[in-house]
Design a binder for these strands. Structure first.
Lengths: 150, 150
DNA sequence: CAACATTAGTCAATATGGTTGACCCATTTA
DNA sequence: TAAATGGGTCAACCATATTGACTAATGTTG
């Protein structure tokens, strides 16, 4: 790989870092007003995406230990954002769902990000969305290939 | 925004999160072998991108306090990865540069990420690189617009 | 020159976010 | 009935960050 190519790729690394950091700033600000943090947001987000998700599934998705999940999850339940009830098919399993209040907050948080993405893709055209997604998927896939070699 | 569009955008949010997480995993593994962490990597990366960068500039780039920078920076200097010397133009200012050893480590860390990006863009074609970068730049710019309103 | 500002380094106190380890309880499965 | 699973919780620990307070050296400006 020549120097010039390396420079170009360095720019992508920088963009990745700055874009991600920027992307989480607004939600972080909103979260702080509610006295909660980024992991709370992730919980809300994934529970929103998959209602009735189990604690176990959530742990796998977020790649944290149950001890790490525990405190924020309890807060969210206590604050009335999340509902945790035993599953009918297996009463050990807790099914997590957003309450109405939880849905509202999740909306507020993710709308900021969805709005950003939407505005960009609208301006750049639908192909840009396809391309961007494909690149991101490839990044994720590459890692999954490595998974077996650990 | 209709439900279907919202779903599509949710996918982009998920991809962003997973892709970023995946992207930092390999470097994190390597860092751990050296007994250092992600902030060390960022320091190495930005010092590599801009040799003779000052501490102040680095702080602004990373958006951390000098106290947060202090420990990892001292380690990097003590471990011989970074050289810190008074600038000629102003002897208060420290000019930070990578040592040869530092360049090697930075190479090792960033090559993983550059290699990933390069492989993907090579497979998807040069337009994908342009598009992906443009999207990321737009994400960053949107935030900079907000900056003034704080 | 004296006063002030800037750059950098450091200590301390504090909060948070995560880890591992060790348990408990209820329920399901073998 | 014994073992495995899903979930919850306590404790100890460590890293990462913050704010605040201070020092020291050097530059800038009235």
């Amino acid at each position: 790989m020549d120097k010039k190519r390396e420079e170009q790729l360095n720019e992508t690394l920088m963009l990745f870092y700055f874009a991600y950091r920027t992307f989480t700033k607004e939600p972080d600000r909103i979260l702080e007003q509610h006295g909660i943090h980024r992991l709370h947001h992730r919980i809300l987000f994934f529970v929103a995406r998959k209602p009735n998700i189990s604690v176990h599934e959530l742990l796998k998705t977020l790649e944290v230990t149950k001890q790490a999940l525990h405190a924020p999850m309890r807060q969210l339940i206590e604050m009335g954002y999340i509902n945790s009830e035993p599953a009918e098919y297996d009463r050990r399993v807790r099914e997590l769902r957003l309450t109405e209040k939880g849905e509202k907050l999740e909306m507020q948080l993710s709308n900021v990000q969805r709005g950003k993405m939407n505005a960009i893709f609208e301006e750049m055209g639908p192909d840009s969305e396809e391309t961007w997604k494909k690149v991101m998927k490839n990044i994720i896939d590459i890692d999954n290939d490595n998974e077996g070699n650990d």
